[in-house]
């Protein structure tokens, strides 16, 4: 591997040009992944759009294309728009909590922990790679009316057995707690990566110029880590706003989310048209979010290498 080096550097530019020419065309390389996404990702979403206006339907119908469901949904008469805002509130809460939990950890790992940082990072990430459903289930055992916390509360005589702490399970609180639990490991990563890539000399320069550590943090480190925070925020917000599994297991009636409504419209109510309107609306919301935060999510910034 060491022999060709001199030649290569001597006429590198020429070699590179040749290199580019002789490879199968960019199009040839790019078409398999692009085709896959067009066929199995973009076209399905277009078909969802067709369902949302009744151009396609689950059962044969005489009704033609109609924007009625869209109008109904967007006019605010629909009960689902209220549910959407409720879910937005819940997802925002989850995202804020998760970033607040993950930031100090990312900061610690990137700037303070020293040599063992990758091992410590791995320790945080591993739970994310284990069964999602099971991690949700674990909280049922902890938070149930006769679960660990309530058993302890009753044993300590703080409450009697017939009046355990009810909001622990089947509530918005439960959904928020469990979702935060599930997403923290995932979010520690982008925050870590941004902080890790900070130019340390700037921090030291700030220190040398007499800035206190707090001042350095708020005026230098934090602003520079904002892209990572933004990416983290979006990466939690998007999946949680479309969440339906966790609410269905621990949310009860009050933790019911927009995603549950979508899922039910497809599997229970068989109202695919309304379901498609709700789904597509979610896609639009995501697109708007990405238009705002998109610069945080680029190939390089989120790289986990």
């Amino acid at each position: 591997m060491s022999t060709g080096q001199a030649t290569a550097s001597s006429n590198g530019r020429e070699a590179r040009r040749r290199h580019l020419r002789t490879w199968p065309g960019t199009v040839g390389l790019l078409s398999p992944p692009l085709l896959w996404l067009i066929l199995f990702f973009l076209i399905p979403i277009v078909i969802v759009a067709a369902y949302s206006v009744g151009a396609l339907s689950l059962f044969p119908t005489t009704q033609g294309v109609s924007f009625f469901d869209w109008k109904h949904f967007l006019s605010g008469d629909s009960i689902y728009i209220g549910l959407f805002w409720k879910s937005v509130r819940m997802s925002l809460t989850v995202s804020v909590i998760v970033v607040l939990l993950a930031y100090p950890v990312g900061y610690f790992l990137a700037l303070v922990s020293g040599k063992r940082k990758y091992v410590l990072l791995l320790l945080i990430i591993v739970p994310f790679l284990t069964s999602y459903l099971l991690r949700v289930l674990a909280w049922k055992v902890i938070l149930g009316s006769e679960g660990i916390i309530n058993t302890a509360v009753v044993t300590l005589g703080l409450r009697d057995a017939d009046h355990p702490v009810q909001w622990l399970i089947y509530s918005q609180f439960t959904v928020i707690l469990v979702l935060a639990y599930v997403w923290v490991p995932f979010v520690a990563l982008p925050i870590f990566v941004t902080l890790e890539n900070l130019d340390r000399s700037i921090l030291e320069a700030a220190g040398d110029l007499g800035a206190s550590r707090w001042r350095t943090f708020w005026r230098v480190t934090f602003p520079m880590s904002l892209p990572g925070v933004g990416a983290a925020f979006v990466f939690v917000f998007i999946p949680t706003i479309g969440e339906f599994v966790t609410p269905s297991l621990v949310g009860g009636t009050s933790g019911f989310m927009y995603g549950n409504a979508i899922s039910d419209l497809f599997t229970q109510g068989l109202d695919w048209q309304t379901g498609s309107v709700l789904s597509l609306f979610l896609v639009v919301v995501v697109l708007v979010l990405m238009a705002i935060f998109g610069r945080f999510v680029q190939v390089r910034s989120a790289g986990a290498g």
């Binding site: 009960i79 689902y80 019911f256 039910d264 419209l265 229970q268 109510g269 109202d271 309304t274």
Partner: peptide, 15 residues
């Protein structure tokens, strides 16, 4: 049945 289902969905969404 579709109407019943639709209304049931709305009941849940109000929960």
């Amino acid at each position: 049945r579709d109407v019943y289902n639709q209304l049931w969905g709305e009941v849940k969404a109000a929960g």
